[in-house]
Amino acid sequence: MISTLFLALLLGCGVDAPAPTAPTASAPTAAAKAPRTYAPVGLGSPATAEEIAAWDLDVSPSGEGLPAGSGTVSQGQALYAAQCMACHGVKGEGGVGPKLIGPDDAKTGFGDDPKIPKTMANWWPYATTAYDYIRRAMPQHAPGSLTPDQTYALTAYLLAENRVVGADFVADAKSLPAVKMPTTVKFVPDDRGSSTVVR
């Protein structure tokens, strides 16, 4: 057992909390046991609504987390040229960054050919994921700099260029979760279990 245990010291700070249950250094057993439980020790500060709002970036497939605003395909086209083309290529064919646009790429056979590019045209299961990722991480030279409208516009442009939506598509908090992605891939939970199947 190479684990080292540090005992908690609750110095007289007026914390009315039960003493933490110290992890025991007993030998591991093969038998499954319930996760151990922990008691609060009274550390941390209440998070304010402002602190949460500033960092709570994620967008779910249901659209939860999408902000107000909207963007069109043509707005996205101009933004793409200014912000994305240097890394992702003139037509989204990829460069320093991965390929983004490939409406005519193979839509099946990924398991047999790992070289098939994975784009919104053949692989991405949710359009909302594009908004989430562009907002948090793109463009790489100025991550997090795009406004909600700009992020919607870029998402709309990429969906349209991949022929997922029409050229008149307007992306917003209502339209994005409703986009049906064209992937034929069925995403399934991990099925390896304790079998000899490996990833």
Binding site: D58, V59, S60, P61, T108, G109, F110, G111, D112, P114, K118, W123, W124, P125, Y126, T128, T129, D132, Y133, T184, V185, K186, F187, V188, P189, D190, D191, R192, R199
Partner: peptide, 26 residues
């Protein structure tokens, strides 16, 4: 789950038969 880019587009395992194993953490 959030269905983030790195658990849908990346870090999923393409399988024959147009299946993709997701959340294959271990």
């Amino acid at each position: 789950p959030a269905m983030a880019k790195d658990e849908t587009v990346r870090y999923t395992d393409a399988l024959p038969g147009d299946l993709a194993r997701q959340f294959s953490f271990v």
